[in-house]
Simulated assay, not measured.
Amino acid sequence: MITPEITAFVLNQGTRVLVSTDKGKSWKESLVSDHLPFLRMLKLGFTSDKDGYLIITGDKTMSWEAHFVFKTNDGGQSWYNAGSVDDTQALVTDGRFITDQLGFISFGEYRLEGQPPVPNLFRTTDGGTNWERVEVPIPEEYRGYFTVAEIPTFHGTEGTLLVNQGQQGDYLGGKVLAKFTSQDQGKTWSFSGLVDPDGVLR
């Protein structure tokens, strides 16, 4: 990740993070963990000059994998295991922290027998210690089409969430997204329409 304040890289070699606060003139290297399985995905970010996160997935077998959330509060000099989403081993599709305490992880689709798949999105408000599933109210006419939540963006407490159609989606060409808005930092969401990047709805 590159911002005006921080440049950081994560190395999949003993899982180390390199951080520079002077635009790459000097670097500090820190070990996150040397006891992790073979890694598939690494999501690194900072929410302030001191607070950062690293979401790691690995040990993938078919549609199962382990995931870990590591945090730093000293600019990347040291990292600690903040936890993970309990009882969930689905494949992570995306993850990000909005602030040091507020974060989201998307696990793609959630399926129940006899029902169309729905987004499998989780939210934490305590830095990653506890997570709860977010209900994304897909309208009845779109259920089964919009199934994978992307990570929301925020302006203050107001949030915007886009839900895509997954890798196999072909509704209106597969690129149309469902848009949701929130007024409570992503605890609840309301459907606000479709996003049409390719103009197929014209």
Rank of each mutant, 00 (worst) to 15 (best):
T3I: 07
T3L: 04
T7E: 05
T7I: 04
L11W: 11
N12Q: 14
N12D: 14
Q13E: 15
Q13H: 14
Q13N: 15
L18C: 02
L18F: 13
V19T: 06
V19S: 01
S20W: 06
T21I: 06
S26L: 04
W27K: 02
K28S: 11
K28N: 10
E29A: 06
E29N: 10
V32Q: 02
S33E: 05
S33A: 07
H35N: 08
L39C: 01
R40P: 00
M41W: 08
L42M: 11
T47M: 09
D49Q: 07
D49M: 13
D49S: 09
D49N: 11
K50L: 09
G52D: 03
Y53G: 07
Y53P: 05
I55S: 03
I55H: 03
I56G: 02
D59S: 12
M62V: 12
H67G: 05
F68E: 02
F68L: 02
F68I: 02
V69M: 12
F70Q: 10
F70N: 13
T72S: 13
D74G: 13
G76R: 08
Q77E: 14
Q77S: 13
W79D: 10
V85Q: 00
D87N: 15
D87R: 06
D87K: 05
T88N: 15
A90C: 04
V92W: 00
T93S: 02
D94E: 15
F97V: 08
I98R: 02
T99G: 08
D100Y: 07
Q101K: 15
Q101A: 03
I105N: 00
I105M: 02
I105Y: 00
F107L: 12
G108I: 00
Y110K: 14
Y110I: 08
G114E: 10
V118S: 12
F122V: 01
T125P: 09
D126R: 02
G127K: 05
G128F: 01
N130T: 14
W131L: 13
W131Q: 05
W131G: 09
W131H: 07
R133T: 08
R133I: 14
E135S: 11
E135R: 13
E135N: 13
V136D: 00
P137I: 15
I138W: 07
I138C: 01
P139D: 14
E141P: 00
Y142H: 13
Y142G: 05
Y142Q: 12
R143G: 05
G144L: 03
Y145K: 15
T147Y: 12
V148T: 14
V148S: 08
V148M: 07
A149R: 03
P152S: 08
F154D: 11
G156F: 14
T157C: 08
T160D: 09
T160Y: 10
L161S: 09
L161N: 08
L162A: 12
V163Y: 05
N164Y: 11
Q165Y: 02
Q165M: 07
G166P: 06
G166R: 05
Q167F: 11
Q168Y: 09
G169S: 04
Y171E: 04
Y171K: 13
L172W: 05
G173C: 04
A178M: 09
K187E: 10
K187G: 06
S190F: 04
S192W: 06
S192L: 03
L194F: 01
V195T: 10
D196M: 12
D198A: 07
G199W: 10
V200C: 06
L201M: 14
L201R: 11
L201T: 01
R202V: 10
